[in-house]
């Protein structure tokens, strides 16, 4: 493996570069993505390398950005647009839910929209209001959208390449707390398939199911549990839509116990969906109800209070403790 140490932001930047070099129809646009290189520097140097036509700033309007991307995708381009922060994608909600998601169905598949909407996503960075939302449920609940959430630099690179190749529109959620996390990334690795979860850690006693920013929390919890003599596995969903029932169910059947970890409020959430699917498929193998550790059902807290809201190792392990160990 020819690994290079880079941050997740650099891994995404690399994927954009490769895609732009490989295919002239790939264009990158949004707010501050040009000269500035994005507020997280994800698009750093793209305008300089590929020119103003391929990477450019737009007027400040998210609905405009996504709506224009729809039209460009209808006319032979593969737009990769950036929403500056999760909550600033909401002005584009109409375009995303009514048009991006539905165009293929409305036109009986005659018009497909090969476009990617990149969204710096979720919290844990001490951001003030509107900068830390976990908005995956809105998108996952909208048929027609593929929803990808990398947890590692390697997946950020590989899944973005896959997203840009995809004939369907993709919501690409980038956990911003990991933007500057360094990791060895093999950019020559084969592009991972969309729709496959991955087992990050094998474990016999129980399965932690997580995605995006919560995968590192689940791994830390598993590490600590191991010190305490409990063997927890970790499954990284990484593709919320399409969902990999097979991998998830197989893993849970093997352990008989599962906890889903996610930052978003738990009510009517992706975590709820995972619990339902696992329960339906693994009922006769379960030793305890499938549990969730999620954010509270509140607006994202101010920076000084976010630690109370975010699922942490302690809360995950306390929930694991409640998985009816005495009964088995």
């Amino acid at each position: 493996m020819s690994g290079v140490t880079m941050t997740m932001a650099q891994a995404i930047n690399t994927a954009l570069r490769e895609a732009m070099a490989a295919d002239e129809s790939v264009v990158v646009f949004g707010e501050d993505v040009g000269a500035l290189g994005g507020v997280f520097r994800v698009t750093d140097g793209l305008a300089a390398t590929f020119g103003e036509q391929r990477c450019f700033d737009t007027p400040l309007a998210e609905s405009g950005i996504v709506g224009m991307a729809v039209g460009m995708a209808m006319n032979g381009m593969r737009p990769v647009v950036e929403m500056q922060f999760d909550a600033f994608a909401y002005p584009a909600f109409e375009q995303i839910t009514s048009h991006v998601a539905k165009m293929a169905s409305r036109t009986r598949g005659r018009v497909r929209l090969p476009m990617v909407i990149r969204i710096p996503y979720a919290g844990g960075i001490g951001g003030v209001e509107h900068h830390c939302d976990s908005s995956e449920a809105y998108y996952a609940h909208t048929p027609g959208l593929t929803v990808l959430v990398p947890a590692t630099g390697a997946d950020a690179h590989g899944l973005l390449r896959a997203a840009i190749h995809s004939p369907d529109p993709v919501i690409f959620l980038e956990p911003k707390k990991h933007y500057f996390t360094k990791e060895e990334v093999d950019v020559t690795a084969p592009v991972p398939p969309v729709g496959r979860a991955v087992v990050r850690r094998a474990g016999r006693d129980a399965t932690l199911i997580a995605y995006g920013p919560s995968v590192s929390v689940a791994l830390a919890a598993a590490e600590q549990a191991a010190d305490e003599g409990r063997d927890l596995g970790v499954v990284d969903i990484r593709s919320i839509v399409p969902f990999d029932d097979e991998t998830v169910a197989a893993t849970v059947r093997a352990t008989g116990r599962a906890v889903v970890v996610a930052e978003a409020p738990g009510f009517a959430s992706v975590a709820s969906e995972i619990v339902a699917r696992v329960t339906e498929r693994c009922f006769h193998h379960l030793e305890a109800p499938v549990r969730r550790v999620t954010g509270f059902d509140i607006p994202y807290p101010p920076p000084k209070l976010e630690r109370h809201h975010l699922p942490g190792v302690d809360r995950v392990l306390a929930t694991v403790d409640e998985l009816q160990w005495d009964a088995s």
């Binding site: 003030v128 209001e129 900068h131 607006p299 000084k304």
Partner: peptide
Amino acid sequence: LLRGDWHCGYDPTAHRVAPQATP
């Protein structure tokens, strides 16, 4: 707001000043 304690630190109705808007 910017210290990170809460989203709006003053009473908008008392001062007739809406919360500072970010979106």
